[in-house]
């Protein structure tokens, strides 16, 4: 399975990288990290253009983020409105939304690369809760630049060990994403509120 996938990189070049990063931003199970690592490795070997690989990965990711945001805005917004009318869920939704909006740029930025498994969901939630598009886009463009440079760069530097790098990277990503979610959920549960009815929280 992995071999078939890796063989597609020299065949389709930058296109497969673009497709992989695009769909991975929509929460589809795409091995985009491995494909970016492979593209970096093939670029190091002189088989692919480094600029084309980075550009394709970046373009796919940025357009994927915008698509996820648009899907969230279209499909998710009515659901958020419905949940806000439900007494039990409303408070949590409002607090989560207020927090996301207060730290919109940094949340989007960090979930592109440091907590990358959370990225696609932040796209949907950002669109659904009407996170200002400009904030979303600034976080997306800067964060995807880091993500793409990191993975293609690691592939370039460790061309002979991409399978090992991919394994370590996926575990680090899982660890950090789960840790970030635990901290965030812990905050939602345990942090005391001052103005719960305004969606405001103690600073």
């Amino acid at each position: 399975m992995t071999d078939t996938l890796l063989a597609m990189v020299p065949h389709y070049g930058a296109w497969i990288v673009l497709v992989a990063t695009f769909f991975s931003c929509l929460a589809l199970p795409m091995p985009s990290s491995l494909i970016m690592l492979a593209a970096g490795a093939f670029a190091a070997a002189g088989e692919l253009s480094l600029m084309a690989s980075v550009g394709a990965a970046w373009g796919g990711a940025v357009v994927g983020d915008q698509t996820g945001y648009a899907i969230g805005a279209k499909g998710g917004a009515p659901l958020v409105q419905r949940l806000k009318r439900r007494k039990k869920a409303a408070e949590t939704i409002l607090r989560a939304e207020a927090m996301l909006h207060r730290r919109g740029v940094s949340t989007v930025f960090l979930t592109r690369w440091l907590f990358s498994p959370l990225g696609p969901y932040v796209n949907f939630v950002g669109g659904a809760t009407d996170l200002p598009w400009r904030h979303f886009t600034i976080g997306s463009i800067s964060g995807e630049t880091v993500w793409v440079t990191l993975y293609v760069g690691l592939g370039f530097a460790f061309a002979g060990q991409i399978a090992e790098v991919a394994q370590i990277a996926s575990n680090v990503a899982g660890f950090l994403a789960a840790g970030a979610m635990a901290v965030w959920l812990g905050w939602l549960i345990f942090h005391r509120r001052v103005h719960p009815h305004h969606g405001g929280t103690r600073r």
């Binding site: 575990n171 680090v172 899982g174 789960a178 979610m181 959920l185 939602l188 549960i189």
Partner: peptide, 23 residues
């Protein structure tokens, strides 16, 4: 008070430990 959030919280802590142990 928030069983759903508490469940999700416990699950993410478990995931975090799982990935940490693997590393």
């Amino acid at each position: 008070d928030k069983p759903l959030l508490a469940g999700a919280f416990a699950l993410t802590v478990l995931f975090c430990l799982f990935f940490g142990a693997k590393l």
